[in-house]
Every structure is written in structure tokens, then in C-alpha cells.
Design a protein around this nucleic acid. Structure first.
Lengths: 344, 344
DNA sequence: GGCGGCGTGCAACACGATTTGCACAATTTC
DNA sequence: GAAATTGTGCAAATCGTGTTGCACGCCGCC
């Protein structure tokens, strides 16, 4: 055991080295009682020399506060959730909280339970939760939120959880703007590649588009590229006629574009395509994807802010949900509706 | 305080409700001593009913083990680091460890110190560290690794840290393959958009390319898209002649392509472009980017595996660094060298 | 019947940091 | 000069769990 993992110093040892009691050491650190400046200096020097840091577990046990919050995301390797994570991390750091990120693998119930247990074991004081599919009433989330645990929903609103504040984008108005944009270009037939049917955000986006295209055909996918690709295949197999395609997120839009192109259809000359989110890829594909920009970083920040505010207040009651503005980004995938199509 | 944050149950309370001592409750949970099956059942029922979960902090304090590991990444919102994170998370979960992800904001020293302190405070038992820039000898990392703390380097090898195991890709052979590929296409003049000069991975990649293009011009960027864009601008401003461009990562390659295209240069007809990593964007841009695929997920997994093995063994000594194979992915950005250029 | 062994449970301590009550000295105040 | 105040430090209790030493009752064995 030449390279055994080192044991950290205890306050006891520091006190012994300085020739004082642990109380004095504790007080020099917390400043809750005056300590002789001379003694304090000696103690500080020894702490510095030893590289002593108080044990977090013991501290939490005594104080009841872990100064840690959690973030549950379906898949941290998605840019989209990565941005949220970064926002949460920024705010947490600013408020001097640590962050535990939990990848729930698209809401695998076993993992989810595990992560909610972090809340029960007081490893974390609160949780920022991002849902990727609909919430069923039997969910662990329902149980834990019913107990007034400190939870904030990021990026998704769940009607079944009335006491839980949320931070979302104004999905409806974003989709409305997209609809109007397509309308102004002369489009009359639009299809929708939607997300999960039970998600509030999806419902809102579909509703927004339908204000301009009341009877737009809507197919439901899973937000992944493959899904956009396959749903377009289905549409083509049925010779469905459309000049505009709205995907509920950019990734599906990009998958859809690929399939359209394989079919010999040009974007935007034959079909205009729009997405939602403005992920990093959206500006990189050619032509650039017309979409709606959500500020995921800000969603993360505000969620953390809300959660921490609740923690400091000792209660989540009275926290108001936030809805952030979105921005229409017009790039190259939208153009005037082709003549022949409007004539069909 | 109608919605005050609820206090969890203590083992004490469970014991009282079951009419036994805490010892008996503890033993029914741990199984370290036999408990009357009848009593055990009663206790288990009450635990279930109350939703009791043992306090993690107290447990750690007593056992000395937190069953948590940390992951430090420069920016969690990058797909690249997100993949690593997911791999680490998968393995950690499998081994029943929790994961704390720390975004170091491109190695902001203040944050880094904060995260290394997680190690010192025993909040985490070990750390998977991914570096984004060179390590200077004064770094906090040097200090902490000198104390034989449980650390594994993911995605980067640091020569100055001899005792710290690492998990990397075979950067050299990947770059060699790229070089040979370009050579076979008839290219003779290549430029290199490199990464940070102090990174081992960058050094290896540049060396690999130079085996085929001994005097390739090398410019250093920061791995971001903007940097690829700007360095190509510099090259163009000097009317530098080249028919092949190697970027040390895909993102810079994509930035470079954008600038080339703005200049009216076609990819791959006028200039062949290759990247490194095979990020998700690489297959989405048109034409698809020829690159070298690294298995970031596996890098994450193996790093976590290595770290956890060290933790279970009680020592990091004797753990061997891992080098994972890479794969050449030929897409549309590479083609035969143009005639006129080879004649220059 | 005495003895050892086994099953079962309890009281008490340990983990490391914080906090409270108390003691002792030095100083100030009337 | 006695009393009150302030500064400084210690011992001990506390947080919730895990573990150890010990006790009690029951069985079987000689």
C-alpha cells in the first residue's frame, strides 16, 4: 500500500497541532465567536499547511444543509440538455451550491427512483427536473412532489403538479410566429412532426401552428433525428401533399430534411422546413434551418434561481412559474410556396 | 408555513414506531446480524409505509464512504463532453455510485479549486478529470494528484502526472490514417488547424499528420468553430496554397469549411477537409465530414471503471492507462487533389 | 443440573463538525 | 473596592447511522 488513498485531516488533529480545542478552531473558521487574533493566525497557518478542509458530511449532519442541488435530465449528451445543465450549474455556483447531475436515460423509472432518493437521503436539498415524456400519475415524481419537496420543472410544465413551479419558453407564441411566417410565404398545406403527445410543450407548439394551418396533419415522433427521417418516409409513402413541414424540434427537422433530399425534393424550393429550439446544428446545416430560438441557458439559470430561492425561504409555496420569450430565427430552409403545389 | 419543506424520518423514529431499538432496524437493513423474521417484517413494513431512507450524510460519516464520484469537464454543454459524461454516468450507476458533474468553465481556476475541494471534503471519493488546456505545474491538479488522490484523466494524457492513470484514444494512429488517406488522394500541401499547443492529444494528432505531410503549416486554435473560421481567414489573407486542411477537431473543421465556402472554394473539389472526433454534427453537414471517430462514451465508461476499481482496491497504484482504438470515417469532404494545385 | 452455544435484542460508543453552557481572567464602571 | 462587562477558551452535548460489547433466554450435550 505505497500509494494508498490518503486520509484527510480532522479538526481534532488541527486543534491538537495548534494546542487548542476544536471549539476554537471551529470558531476561527466560522467567526461566530471572537478568537484571539494571535491564536487565530496560528490556527489558520496550520490549516493552510495541512491543507485541511472540513468534512462535508459531518457538516451537513450537524447543520442539516448539504448545499447541493440536483438536476435530472433525460440525456446529458444532448446539446439541448447540456445547455440547461450549464445554466443551472452557473447559478448554483454563484449561490455557492454544488450540483449533482443525473442522467435519467429517458426517464428509466429505476434510475429516476434512485435520483429522487438523493432528495430523501438529503444528499441534495432540491431538484431541477426536466421531463422528456409525459408524466403518468403513478410516477415517482407525483409521489415526491406531493410531499412538497423542493422541485422545479425546467423546460416543461406539468398540469398535474399544481404546486411545482416551472420555467418554460413561450412555446405557443413561438409556434404562432412560425405559422405566420409560413403563411406569409404563401403556404397552405403544412404537416407537423410533433413530439411526445403528452408533453405540454408539444401540445402548445402544435396548437400554435394550427392557428395558421387549422387542419395540418400531425405525426408524433420521439425528438430524435431518426424519427424525423422515418415519419417523412411514411408521408412520402402515402403521397401526402405538403409544401411546409414543421418539426417540434430541430433534430427531427434535420432528419426530415435528409429524407426529403433523398427523395429529390429541394429545401426550400419544393418544401419549406422549420424546427424549434435553435440548437447548434441548426446554423450549421445547409441551408440554415429556420427555427425558434429558446434560451436554454436562461431556462437553466432561472430554474436554479427559483429552486434556491425556495430553499432559502424554507418553502416552495409562493414561487411563481416563469415563461421566457423566444425569438424567430429565419434562415434558409423557408421560402415561397411553390406555384404548382398551391394549385393542387 | 403550509408548504414547508418536509423533514425526513430518522431511524430513531422508525425504531420507536416498531417498538424496537435502532440497532435492530439497522441490522434488518444491513443484514450484518440475524434478526427475527417476524420483527424484520414488521420493521420493513413501517419503513415502507413511512418512506424512510437512511440519511446519506450520517451514513458516510460513519462508514467513511460517500459512494459518489465526480466528473470535471470544461463545458458540459459540448456534445463531446456530454458523451463522456454519459459514459461515466452509466458505469457509475452500474457500480452503484452517484455522480457529481462539475463544469469547470474551461478550467477557471477558482471553480477548479472548488471542485477539487469536493475530493478533500470527502463529498466525492474520486474524480474523473478532463482537461481542455495544458496543465501548468502550478495547478491545483498537480497538488492534489501529488497526494495520491483517486483521479483518472479522461481524454487527455498529462506527462507531468506519472501516477495518474488515463483513458485516451489512439490519437497518433488516427491522425496517421487521415494523413495516409489524404496522401492517397494525391494531396501534397496540407495545413493544420491545431488545438492548444500544450495538449498531448494535439501534439499526437499533429505528429500523425506530419508523417505524411512533414512540413505542413500548423496554426493553433481553441477548438471552437469561430477559431477554425478565423484561422482560415488568416491563411487566405496570405494567399497560402493548400489542397488539404486538417483540423484537430470537427468543430473547427466545420468553421473552416464555412470560411472556405465564403471564399468561393468548393469542398472537396478545391480543398479537402478532415476533422477529428466524429461529433454528431459531422454527419449532418453537407457534404459529410471525413473524420476519425473516437468513442467518447467508451472513454467515459472506462475512466469510471478505472476510478472505481481503484477505489474498491483502496489504492490507485497498479492501474494501467488505457488507449482506445479509433476509426477512420470517410465521408464527402475529401476527394482527389485538384490538378492545378499539385502543379503549383 | 451445569455448561457451552446460539439466536435475539439493547445500551453505548464512534464518526467529525458545530453549538451551548460554563469558567476564568482582564477590564471597566459606579 | 465590589460588581458588571467583555474577551477567550474548554468540556460536553448534538446531528443520524453503524458497530461492538454485553445480557437474556432457549436449546442441547455431557
Amino acid at each position: 500500500m505505497t500509494d494508498a488513498i490518503p486520509k484527510p485531516w480532522t479538526m481534532q488533529q488541527i486543534a491538537a497541532a495548534a494546542g487548542v480545542s476544536v471549539t476554537t478552531v471551529s470558531h476561527t473558521l466560522s467567526g461566530k465567536r471572537p478568537v484571539n487574533p494571535e491564536t487565530a493566525l496560528r490556527i489558520r497557518r496550520i490549516i493552510e499547511e495541512f491543507g485541511y478542509v472540513p468534512d462535508a458530511g459531518a457538516r451537513r449532519l450537524k447543520s442539516g444543509r448539504s448545499r447541493m442541488i440536483g438536476l435530472a435530465v433525460p440525456d446529458i449528451s444532448h446539446w439541448y440538455f447540456g445547455r440547461i445543465a450549464r445554466g443551472v450549474e452557473e447559478m448554483a455556483n454563484e449561490a455557492d451550491y454544488g450540483l449533482i447531475i443525473c442522467s435519467t436515460s429517458n426517464s428509466d423509472p429505476r434510475r429516476e427512483k434512485r435520483y429522487f432518493n438523493l432528495l430523501r437521503t438529503r444528499s441534495i436539498e432540491g431538484l431541477v427536473y426536466t421531463a422528456s415524456r409525459e408524466i403518468s400519475p403513478t410516477d415517482e415524481l407525483m409521489k415526491i412532489s406531493a410531499s412538497a419537496s423542493p422541485i422545479v420543472l425546467a423546460d416543461e410544465d406539468i398540469a398535474e403538479l399544481p404546486g411545482v413551479p416551472s420555467v418554460t419558453s413561450t412555446n405557443l407564441s413561438g409556434a404562432q410566429e412560425l405559422g405566420r411566417h409560413l403563411r406569409e410565404l404563401g403556404h397552405t398545406r403544412a404537416v407537423i412532426i410533433a413530439g411526445f403527445a403528452g408533453l405540454h410543450s408539444t401540445v402548445q407548439r402544435v396548437a400554435g401552428i394550427r392557428e395558421s394551418f387549422p387542419n395540418a396533419l400531425a405525426l408524433h415522433g420521439d425528438f430524435e433525428m431518426q424519427s424525423g427521417y422515418e415519419l417523412v418516409s411514411d408521408l412520402l409513402a402515402h403521397e401526402t401533399k405538403f409544401t411546409a413541414l414543421f418539426a417540434c424540434n430541430d433534430i427531427m427537422a434535420i432528419g426530415a430534411m435528409r429524407r426529403l433530399r433523398e427523395e429529390g425534393l429541394r429545401v426550400p424550393e419544393d418544401v419549406s422546413v422549420v424546427g424549434f429550439d435553435d440548437v447548434d446544428m441548426a446554423s450549421v446545416v445547409t441551408p440554415g434551418l429556420t427555427t425558434v430560438r429558446q434560451d436554454m441557458l436562461e431556462i437553466g439559470r432561472r430554474s436554479a434561481q427559483l429552486l434556491i430561492a425556495g430553499l432559502e425561504a424554507g418553502s416552495m409555496a409562493g414561487l411563481e412559474s416563469v415563461s421566457l420569450p423566444v425569438q424567430l430565427i429565419i434562415r434558409g430552409t423557408t421560402g415561397p410556396a411553390p406555384r404548382f403545389a398551391t394549385a393542387v
